[in-house]
């Protein structure tokens, strides 16, 4: 009856874990019709161990977990620039000379940082969804007379639903994904704003005074002198933030996106012969071990790349790091 989001719909007493929608449940119990990658996979029960494993790891459902790794990478690729943009806007607002704008920027940084992030994730997905539907409701159904909040339900007209009830499944999934991206961008934007705000203050005051002495307007000083110089100071903080962002990606699971955590739980659970050709015991431990290794490798690779970027950026800078490089050479 109410307009509850599909992935937040739960039966009472069920664990607080997003449960799959009817569609997904159906999809999970249908037999795997995709042709096998290896030709020897026709009768898995008679295969030797390594071939069994090769067939097992290339079933259609396993393809989903590999795809979800790409989802994580896609999330990172979209969120990182978006969070940077939010951070830049927040930091610029916080150091604005117009008081209300400055309060807005500082308030944004303080509130998002003061509250556990996971609470923010859970809160934002619903709040954002309701906000969009409320605005659409106001715009599309002006002659609707009933209140939107009826007791415990949030009711908007059918035309205002987002996405529309008739939309295909992939639209729902894409919408869910982009809500998640937006939520990540807001939360990490606040952290980025904090880093950039500090970096903007770290640019030597004399640089800005010189710009003013040349007759630049505040806007010109900001765009031409402050912004190009702040990146060196911001990079250590931003690279730290990148590491934290990587480690926050499993939280996608809580936002109802079918990510690697979801699939690891699905695929690892005990499978009996009735439902699959590849029966096995409870393997969730090994699936999560694989995820743990994946994240360790990913953070390690990022560390190496970021160290190189930092070395490249400090080259020739009048900082301690740059001086050390000069002496070593």
């Amino acid at each position: 009856m109410g307009n509850r989001r599909r992935f937040l719909k739960k039966k009472p007493g069920e664990g607080h874990v997003p449960s799959p929608s009817l569609f997904q449940k159906y999809a999970l119990t249908t037999p795997d019709t995709r042709p096998a990658i290896f030709s020897f996979c026709t009768d898995p029960s008679s295969l030797p161990d390594w071939q069994w494993m090769a067939c097992y790891l290339t079933t259609g459902k396993h393809m989903s977990i590999y795809w979800s790794v790409l989802t994580v990478l896609l999330l990172l690729a979209i969120t990182a620039p978006a969070a940077l943009a939010f951070g830049f806007a927040g930091a610029s607002a916080a150091r604005s000379r117009i008081a209300p704008l400055s309060w807005l920027g500082k308030g944004y940084i303080a509130i998002v940082r003061g509250v556990p992030d996971i609470a923010f994730f859970l809160f934002f997905v619903i709040a954002l969804d309701q906000m969009i539907e409320y605005v659409r409701h106001r715009a599309l159904c002006p002659d609707w007379s009933e209140p939107i909040r009826q007791g415990n339900d949030f009711v908007v007209c059918a035309a205002a639903k987002m996405p529309l009830g008739t939309a295909p499944q992939w639209v729902h999934e894409t919408y869910g994904f982009f809500t998640a991206v937006f939520t990540f961008a807001i939360v990490f934007g606040a952290f980025a704003a904090n880093v950039l705000f500090g970096a903007m203050r770290a640019v030597p005051r004399a640089q800005l005074e010189t710009a003013e002495a040349y007759g630049m307007s505040p806007r010109q000083t900001f765009m031409r002198v402050l912004v190009p110089q702040m990146w060196v100071y911001a990079l250590p903080g931003l690279s730290n933030l990148w590491m934290v962002l990587i480690k926050a990606t499993p939280l996608l699971f809580l936002l109802g996106v079918e990510d690697i955590v979801y699939w690891a739980r699905e695929l690892g659970g005990t499978k009996t012969e009735r439902f699959t050709e590849y029966p096995h015991g409870d393997w969730r431990m090994w699936y999560f071990l694989a995820l743990l290794v994946f994240y360790l490798l990913f953070t390690r690779a990022s560390e190496v790349v970021l160290e190189r970027i930092m070395a490249r950026l400090t080259l020739g800078q009048a900082t301690t790091g740059g001086e050390a490089q000069r002496k070593a050479a």
């Binding site: 480690k247 499993p250 969730r284 999560f288 071990l289 995820l291 743990l292 360790l296 953070t299």
Partner: peptide
Amino acid sequence: RGSPLFIQFFFAYFV
């Protein structure tokens, strides 16, 4: 420090 706490929880629970 290199892996997400969320995954650590899951892994430990299943272990």
